[in-house]
Design a protein around this nucleic acid. Sequence first.
DNA 1: GTTGAAACACCCTCAAT
DNA 2: ATTGAGGGTGTTTCAAC
Lengths: 153, 153
Amino acid sequence: MIDIDAIDRKILTVLQRDGALSQRDVAAEVGLSQNACWRRIKRLTELGVIEGFHARLNSDLIGLDLTVFMMIRTRQHSEGWMRDFRKHLATIPEIVEVHRIGGDWDYLIKVVTTSMAGYDQVYQRLTAKVDLETVTGLFAMETILENQPLHMP
Amino acid sequence: MIDIDAIDRKILTVLQRDGALSQRDVAAEVGLSQNACWRRIKRLTELGVIEGFHARLNSDLIGLDLTVFMMIRTRQHSEGWMRDFRKHLATIPEIVEVHRIGGDWDYLIKVVTTSMAGYDQVYQRLTAKVDLETVTGLFAMETILENQPLHMP
DNA sequence: GTTGAAACACCCTCAAT
DNA sequence: ATTGAGGGTGTTTCAAC
């Protein structure tokens, strides 16, 4: 396992909270010189711990008002079918998250779209090409927390 | 509603994909001068469309190997109880996402933690202080897609 | 780990078109 | 909207401690 010390964890916490901070500010927050901080950030990036920096948008302001979690039970489970299924999922841009899960269901999918009509389109596109046993939608009435920073273990 | 034209949408798409790009590079990608691009980014930030820039981490590399979606049915639904429930949720750092949902369940919670033992701690902390009717965990065996950029409508 | 310095790129503003 | 230019800031790499 990669070794990440307490200062690295501090840096990662700070950069999750605000990735636009200058290295000088990050260094000050974690109690390091700018130079040392730069070396650590560079190392964490090279190790792949920091995957990148990204803008976070306010979904409501761009008209993405509906979040739905789809739970899916599949009929087929072969390698080839799964590969096709994944490729198909990746072509639907409203799908922002997909997990293969255990238990009564096989997949959990998060969809962010404009409206019920938009969701219906996703539903149609998803079910048109693949053979699914059951599909249920859990509609988010209200998002209470989202995009919380990962907790450093 | 705020008006966001095709170029703004392009900018937002680019910055979601890579928020570390220089304005010169963003400008080149969307076919604008650096100056004009800067003005648009500034406007989008002031409008609140761009909420900020954040580092994205590789959760496996920092030892966060387990993702669980908790589905919760609550016993109480009063204003005061809900407020307390939310405050309690916010104190558990392994909880990265909470939605109030419609249907058979009341809340969907995403938990990212180290292990089953870590999940159990979250479970214990969550259920210790609040009165919940039913709690189920959907365990992610594999994450197929995550953090996909929001699709511009 | 630290400071200081130098070279360079980037950000932001302004003036002119 | 554009280009060009300038000052200030941030990044990256040194050398020395």
